[in-house]
Simulated scan of single mutants.
Amino acid sequence: MANSSTELRPPELSTDDLLQVPDDYFTTDTVAIVTGGGSGIGQATSVALAINGLTVAAVDIDEEGLEETVDVATSLDADGRVVPIEGDLTDDEAVEATVDEAADLGTIRYAANIAGMQHIASLADFPMETYDFMHDLMLRSPFLLSKLVIPHIEATDDGVGAIGNMSSVHGHYATQNKPAYITLKHGLTGLTRAIAAEGSGSLRGFSVSVGYVLTPLMVGQIKDTAEERGISEQEVIEDVMLGQARTKEMMTPAEVANLFVFGFSSHARHLNGGDLLWDGGYTTTYE
């Protein structure tokens, strides 16, 4: 368990941490779009898919973060590549431009909707302008990106592809002071099932749900939660974040990225409309 905030920094990515899956579709001619590709889970997923030989269109508003993602993939001698696409996912035209640019890189078969944010406040006090932004980023944008990507997958010779959505344990249950995040993650469950329902079996939809992960978002969330509840950051880590889990350690971005690699692979062809719940026992055990 971490004892100080310095230990909460995400570990550096290495090839030893990343799942590598032989798959006929994992080639540089195949494109995977990854949102939030400039940091955290999105960065790790972009690198992991590039390690597996794919061309990754990594999308983020953070230009420096995207450059870092490219550098990490290059430093690990990825068989594929990361192509940075700077864009505001809350802007419809930017999302459309992203898909157009990605289509120029090869055949789009995969998309990972990972970009997200958190805001800690009670439902009664939640600022609606923040809710609107979170909605546009975390639910409307995945809906639009899926809408735009599906025709590309359907236009392939066999219609094989998948759209993975980054959900959460908060897509399964609710806790206090995260009403927008909880609402939107539950919404992603519906989107995932809608994709599966319309995908004819070969175009799949799935989601990934995890507990707390060592990302920059999580570090900021610790600070916000401590302020909201009037407790120390260490108490947030030990009592709030890890208190309910049976596995007493936080996941790493690489571990989450590996779930997207598996979910996109042919080994997961029966994962359709379902959720990869990797939560250390958060939602299935209690005291």
Rank of each mutant, 00 (worst) to 15 (best):
E233C: 02
P216N: 11
N272P: 12
D275I: 11
R229A: 05
S207G: 14
G274Q: 13
L242Y: 00
G211Q: 04
H270L: 09
F260W: 08
E238C: 04
N258E: 08
S232A: 09
A254L: 09
L242F: 05
V261W: 00
L203S: 03
M241I: 15
Q244I: 07
T252W: 06
L217I: 10
V256S: 02
L271E: 02
R269A: 03
G205C: 03
G220V: 04
M251K: 07
S232D: 06
Q221C: 04
A268P: 08
H267D: 15
V256Y: 04
Y212W: 12
F264V: 05
T225Y: 01
T252Q: 12
H270W: 12
G273P: 11
A245I: 15
E233H: 01
G220I: 02
M251Q: 12
S232V: 08
E238G: 09
T215L: 10
K223V: 08
G274H: 02
S265Q: 01
M251G: 06
L276Y: 08
S202F: 10
L276C: 04
E249V: 14
Q234D: 01
G230Y: 08
D239L: 03
S202N: 14
F206L: 01
S207T: 12
V256P: 00
E255V: 07
Q234H: 06
V256W: 00
I222Q: 08
Y212K: 09
V236L: 13
V213F: 00
D275H: 05
N272F: 13
S266T: 14
E238H: 13
V261Q: 01
E228V: 01
G211V: 01
V213R: 02
H267A: 11
E255P: 05
V236E: 04
Q221W: 00
G263D: 10
V256A: 07
R269Y: 02
T215F: 06
H270N: 14
V208H: 08
L259D: 00
Q221D: 05
L214M: 15
A257T: 06
V240S: 06
